[in-house]
Amino acid sequence: MDKLIPIGADKIFALVGISKNSGKTSVLNAILQAFPQYRWAVLSTGIDGEELDALFQTPKPQVALAKGSLFVCDEESLKGGGSGIRLLQRFEDVGRILYIARAERDIKVRITGPASVSSQRNIIRILQKEGADKVLVDGALDRKSIALDEGIDALILCIGASFGNIESIKEEIRRLIIMRDIPLFEGSCYLKRRFAASNELLRQLSGRWFKSGIKSILGDGDALQELFAEELESLYLPTALTDAVFENHQTQLRHLKSLVIRHPQNLQLSLTNLNKLMRITHVQSLIPFKIKAFAINSTAIGAAQPAADEYRREIRDSFPELRFIDIMEV
């Protein structure tokens, strides 16, 4: 973190986890405490900092903000805040009333944020206009979260023991590292803009890109077969590629010059199938997977509790090239 956070060009950070209860709020609090020289703004793509886990009713850390910090909250978050919270703006989001607020003293709060990526982008711009030096987003690895938006400068990946056994966790880390390292699309600025605006598959024939009329390859095997019958050179995929689709069409994918995806998270593939895909065609991504730091949490909620020292040692020994932040040590 000491090398990541102070980088001047990096203003917007997103915390994401591979499972629920991965320790994101603990990492968020550690960052806020370690870098008090910045005026921070925080928001969530869900609700974070609640006192109890909604499912398991186990205690959870609240978000600890220093005086002057900015945050997004709802009516429930304001209870008990009193004079410690100053409301700056009020807005409605999908039937909810949300607020942009400032901490008038050191406080512990619950944070939230708007539901859509476009609204999350807008809120970040407002927070920056209100004076935030840097923004922390408690996000998620899904398409409805700004965590995967190209406007995010850095992702901090939290790896919790709640995900599963140690072998499944190591497999997931390997999968995410492969996706992180997928090269960016090398096309022109015009093509990048065209791809970003497209919600349907685009196909390349004789060096030119054309619309396909297909918006999803899930459950539409006939349309995909017709598409591959055209002897494609390359394909742009703005939607998910699942194991089932890959296994049905890997022969055709093998003949592509390149497969361009919107974001590496479009590849909803097992580690085995992801490795196969990377071997049989040249994969490029329109948006980079900006994982720049890793944090591990040995506490498992709702799953078998591993031995903390063994869990940390096993992960660190398996990935000696990576530096893992230990949530228990922050």
Results as ranks from 00 to 15, higher is better:
Ser258Thr: 06
Ser258Ile: 01
Ser258Asn: 12
Ser258Ala: 13
Leu259Arg: 09
Ile261Gly: 00
Arg262Cys: 01
His263Pro: 00
His263Ile: 00
Pro264Asn: 06
Pro264Gln: 04
Gln265Thr: 04
Gln265Arg: 03
Asn266Arg: 10
Asn266Tyr: 04
Leu267Ala: 07
Gln268Ser: 13
Gln268Thr: 11
Leu269Cys: 04
Ser270Leu: 12
Leu271Trp: 12
Thr272His: 11
Asn273Val: 10
Asn273Asp: 14
Asn273Met: 06
Asn275His: 11
Asn275Cys: 09
Lys276Ser: 13
Leu277Asp: 12
Met278Leu: 14
Met278Tyr: 12
Arg279Gln: 14
Arg279Val: 06
Arg279His: 12
Ile280Val: 14
Ile280Lys: 07
His282Arg: 13
His282Met: 03
His282Gly: 01
Val283Thr: 14
Gln284Asn: 02
Ser285Val: 07
Ser285Gln: 04
Leu286Gly: 07
Leu286Lys: 02
Ile287Val: 15
Pro288Met: 07
Pro288Ile: 03
Phe289Ala: 12
Phe289Ser: 10
Lys290Trp: 05
Lys290Pro: 08
Ile291Phe: 09
Lys292Thr: 08
Lys292Val: 05
Ala293Pro: 09
Ala293Gln: 14
Ala293Trp: 10
Ala293Gly: 13
Phe294Tyr: 15
Phe294Gly: 05
Phe294Ile: 04
Ala295Thr: 07
Ala295Asn: 08
Ala295Trp: 07
Ala295Met: 10
Ala295Arg: 10
Ile296Ala: 09
Ile296Asn: 11
Asn297Met: 06
Asn297Gln: 03
Thr299Met: 08
Thr299Ala: 05
Thr299Ile: 14
Thr299Val: 14
Ala300Asn: 07
Gly302Pro: 02
Ala304Asp: 01
Ala304Trp: 00
Ala304Phe: 01
Pro306Asp: 02
Ala307Gly: 00
Ala307Val: 09
Ala308Pro: 13
Glu310Tyr: 07
Arg312Asn: 12
Arg312Ile: 15
Arg313Leu: 04
Arg313Lys: 15
Glu314Arg: 13
Glu314Ser: 15
Ile315Ala: 03
Ile315Glu: 10
Ile315Ser: 12
Ile315Leu: 14
Ile315His: 06
Arg316Thr: 15
Asp317Met: 06
Phe319His: 04
Phe319Thr: 00
Pro320Phe: 02
Glu321Cys: 00
Glu321Lys: 06
